[in-house]
Write a protein that binds this DNA or RNA. Sequence first.
DNA 1: GTGAAAGCGCTAACAA
DNA 2: TTGTTAGCGCTTTCAC
Lengths: 356, 356
Amino acid sequence: MGATMHDVALIAGVSVKTVSNVINDYPHVRPVTRNRVLAAIAELGYRPNLTARGLRSGKTGIIGLAVPELRENYFAELADSVIRAAEKHGLGVLVEQTNGDRDTERLVISGARMHFTDGILFSPVGMGQADAPLLDVPFPLVLLGERIFNGPTDHVTMHNVSSAVATVEHLLSIGRRRIALVGAEGDDDSDASSWSLRTRGYRRALDQAGIPGNERLVRRTSHWNRAGGAAAIHEMVAEGQEFDAVFALNDALALGVLRGLQEVGLRVPEDVAVVGFDNVDESQYAVPSLTTVDPGREEIAATAVELLVERINEKGVKAPPRTVKADFHIVSRESTGAGPVPSPLVAATPRVELPT
Amino acid sequence: MGATMHDVALIAGVSVKTVSNVINDYPHVRPVTRNRVLAAIAELGYRPNLTARGLRSGKTGIIGLAVPELRENYFAELADSVIRAAEKHGLGVLVEQTNGDRDTERLVISGARMHFTDGILFSPVGMGQADAPLLDVPFPLVLLGERIFNGPTDHVTMHNVSSAVATVEHLLSIGRRRIALVGAEGDDDSDASSWSLRTRGYRRALDQAGIPGNERLVRRTSHWNRAGGAAAIHEMVAEGQEFDAVFALNDALALGVLRGLQEVGLRVPEDVAVVGFDNVDESQYAVPSLTTVDPGREEIAATAVELLVERINEKGVKAPPRTVKADFHIVSRESTGAGPVPSPLVAATPRVELPT
DNA sequence: GTGAAAGCGCTAACAA
DNA sequence: TTGTTAGCGCTTTCAC
């Protein structure tokens, strides 16, 4: 295999300590010595063995990222952001997929896999509030998303309730009154789920506007995907429900809603305005382009990595768990009547900005 | 931090070797002893230190995956498949993004980052044929995709030429004669690029059918994205070109083509049939759903991991570099007139299957 | 400013 | 069947 520090020391005619000093930029090394060492390193093509270094230092420089599935746009984009953020800290990212499966999630958290990592970013979907105690693990762990509250770990999440309020207010402001809601849910159904929080915001906004809620317009499908969104539309139309707007609790559902509306012959936004949630890249390319809530994914990723790094470097007594919420924005596009984007070459930018 | 093997040995009243034997399922351990050790392990919550093990064995159980960007659907799905395939071999996957940037790709290949990995799966986009010599690296490396031929490494790729031929033949078979082609290209433009190979197949199929090529219908945009696809349509229409089909060299371009056609008032598939390439999840949800070439992504991922594992375990003289091509299929959907999918709840399945 | 030597936690000869 | 021991390649006191 590769050359070792010892080999370098031999060729340079110095001790391994000196080689180590050079590699680690220890200041007090004579330039002559340093150059001799550098020459030897170049000559042998020496590369420090990170495994050995990891053994010594107790750190690997790798963090784990556990998400349901990379093929889901939101998580692919989240992983993208996390990898970029980690890179700035000189960290590599080991990606693990849980499939949103509770048992797999538990396994990841048990540290059974992911043992090379200095810490883990974990986006739970299958686990719920009841599993909170399991999160009290002996390694740095930061939670992404909103499934579990008041857990024993740091937690980076979004303004689910207030962004939902703002979304409905936006729909009201453009004159919509019969606003349907389409969401989904996994195994668990605690008060901390996306469904619960965003639905709460929806009801609150309607209340505040003095508009009576209509439970027939609140739809819940089994999956957070397009099929679910399209099915919800077909159901409502089949039942003869009337509505002039749909708030879909994620973009995949919203894209399905767009397709469903097209299939039943309803125009967007003329007949029905549509808003999604997540601001995945794709939402801007949909036909019509999709108005959606940008929950601050970049900020979430950067903050989460930041917190994790702090925890990794933390010594002595642990600081109490922290919760951070990213700023959100409503990105107004064609599906709520924002002037047609001039050309697909121009990326849509936020029109309405409603910080926390 | 955690307990060590030594602690376990102490509590169990045995030597570290015995503990090691138990952990590694060494057969000749008396059940009584084994149980005592297991009890001690449980009591201390002992977990083997993988870093130390890695130092000893010279392996980490981690492979690297270098792709341009996870936010590009194709690569997210590829990463998904790779992670699943790696898991079956008990390997973790460290994901690195190159942004398709030649220098970053070179850096990754230099092993500057990725130093913890036993080997790397690399999907080059910025590098080209000229960089082939750089691929002669001192660690296991398997190439994904078709940028570089006859390199010094194993290579898993797709049937670019023959699948393009089959695609055009499919369009001819449904009566289209004025078939446009929309592709893009990166820095390099060797004969091994997606553009070159797929375009070659396109021309060959037209030749074989005795249809004269029309270079005004061959469009090349700067990026493999929707904006590029939409722009190509706008250009051709502005120039007054007439065409009854578009073969887009990837799905992102094809989705942009769909949007562009809609914007200029052309119907799909009545006026223009559209075929993409990649079979990303999204293609099946587009409106209309997109006919596309499935290049065998799952198989590519599984094969690549397989080859890499073989290389990692290879001792002595290296076997010569191998090239493997995955089977492809044409997935026929609405954009070429396949009967409308009954409901978005039903995932479209391949209709036309054209193995190598 | 540089060297010698002791481990980090684990595995695998080699002994017993 | 189990124990002893020597490293894997690196960092890091502690001398010099």
